[in-house]
Design a protein around this nucleic acid. Sequence first.
RNA 1: GGCGACGUGGCCGAGCGGUUAGGCACGGGUCUGCAAAACCCUUUACGGGAGUUCGAAUCUCCCCGUCGCCUCCA
Length: 489
Amino acid sequence: MALVLYNTLTRRKEPFSPLNPPYVGMYVCGPTVYGDPHLGHARAAVVFDVLYRYLTFQGYKVRYVRNITDVGHLEGDADEGEDKILKKARLEKIEPIEVAQRYTALYHKAMDALNVRRPSIEPTATGHIPQQIAMVQRILERGYAYVVNGSVYLDVELYRQDFPYGVLSGRQVEELIAGSRELEGQAEKRHPWDFALWKRAEPTHLMQWDSPWGRGYPGWHIECSAMSTHYLGVPFDIHGGGLDLIFPHHEAEIAQAHACYGEAAHHQARFWIHNNLVTIDGQKMSKSLGNFITIEEVFSGNHPKLSRGYPPMALRFLILQAHYRSTLDFSEEALRAAYRAYLRLMNAYRRLLQVRPHSYATYSIGAWKEKVFAALDDDLNTAAALALFFEQTDDILRLYRNEIYLSPEDLDSLKRIWQEVLFDILGLTPIHQVEWERWERVVNLLIHLRRQARSERNFALADFLRDELQRLGVRLLDFPEETLWELAE
RNA sequence: GGCGACGUGGCCGAGCGGUUAGGCACGGGUCUGCAAAACCCUUUACGGGAGUUCGAAUCUCCCCGUCGCCUCCA
C-alpha cells in the first residue's frame, strides 16, 4: 500500500515519497483576500486539507504552508490591471489592510465551518517583501531579468535559452507569441510574454515599499516563490492549487525558481497537484457570468439557486463525493443528495458505537479495510472510499440487531476505521458525543411515551409524537420489539 | 487558432480490458394501526461510427457535443 498522486508536471500518477523523510513540505496557493470566499475556495481548501490529513495520518511530519495574497494580484490584462485589493479599498473608501483583514477573517470563518484544518504556516505577501526583493535581486544578478523604469521583468527569452519554459502547462513560447495580444503599456517589456517580478508604484499608489529599483510592489508570481522557498526550501515536496493557476502563475513560479537557483531548483516542487474547478450548470463559476455562489450563501440559503440553507458538512461531503481532478457541477439537488448521504453515514456511525461484541463472527472486514485504504492511496479517490462506507451501513444495522456478528477484534477495527477515515482523514465532523447522548435520552423518553400510546391504541397521540419528532429532524424506525431513531433532513 | 480535459441510467458521481460502484430520486411487494425504516423484486447506462480483442464504458482511429487554459481566477 502506497500513496500514488497525479503529478501535473509529468502527467502521470507517481508513487509519493518525500525528499527528506519523515518531513513533507507542502505549499498551496491560498486566496487573494478581496472578496467573499466561494465554492471554488471551498473545494481547493478541502481537497488539500484531505491530502494534509492523509499524509499526517501516514506518519509524515507535514509542514503545510498556505499563503494569503494581500497585495500584487492584478486584475485585467497583462501586468497593467489594478491591484484587486486596492480596487476594493478604493471602492469602499477604506484602507487596503482593512480589505485584506476583513476577507481573511471571512475566509477563516468559512474554512473553520468546513472543518478545514489551519495550515502550519499562513504567510502573507505583505509580510515577506524583503524575501521577495532578495529573490528578484538574485534573479537580476544571474542575468534572467531586467530593470525598466523602476519595474523588473523576467526575460523569458533569455530564460528559455537555459531552461525549458512551459513544461507544466504544455505550452510553447511560439504559441504564446502567436496568441499574445498587443496591450497598452507593455512597451517597456522586451517581449510581451515577459512577466513582472516587481512593479514601479506611482506616488499615489496605496501599497508600496522601498526597493533597490525605487518605490514599488511585488508581482503576484514572485510572492508564492519567495514564501514557499523561505519556509520549505528548494525544491520541496508538493505544490498545490487550482487548475486555473497552472498558467501563468505556476509556470512563472517554476521559471522564477530556476532563474534564482538554477537546475538545483528542480521545478521548485517534486509534485505539482491541481484540483479541478466547480461549475454551475456546466460552466465555471465567475463573477462575470454572475453564477457565483459564496460559501456563506450555501450555509444561509440566501441565493437564487437555493431554496434553503445547508450545513457545512453537506458541502464538504459534496466535494468529497467527486474525485478532486474531475469538475464538480454544483446544484441544489446534488447538495441535498450529499447532505442526506452524509446523515446516513453519521447515523450508521452512531449505531456502530452501540454495537456489542460477540464471541463469534459470521463475517470479517479485512478485505473491506484494505479496499478503503487502496482507494485513498489511489490518487486520493475519496469518492470510491466513501462508497465503501455505504456498503457497511446496512450491515451495521444488522450487527446492532444481532442478526450478524463480528469478532471483537474486527468490531474494534471497524469502529477505528470509521473514526480514522471519516473524521480524521476526510475531515467530516460527527454530531458531538455529548449532544448525541442528550438527544438519546430525550428522544428515548418520547419513544417510550409513543409506544405506550400505541399499545393503548391511542394512535392520534402516537402519530402526533412521531410527526413532531420528524419536524425536528428525528426519524423513528419501528421494529416489532423496539423503536430506534436517527437524524433526518 | 494552440494546449488540455470531459461526454456513464431521472440527478450527482466512481470506474483505467472480464465482477451490482455508490449516493439521491422513482416503481412494485413484504412488514405496519397508518407510515417511515428494514428486507425482497423490478426499471432507467456507458455521445455516434469503425477497429483491436475470446471479451471494451475501459485500448486505437474518425465524427459530434460540452468545458477549461492561452497573462483576472481555487
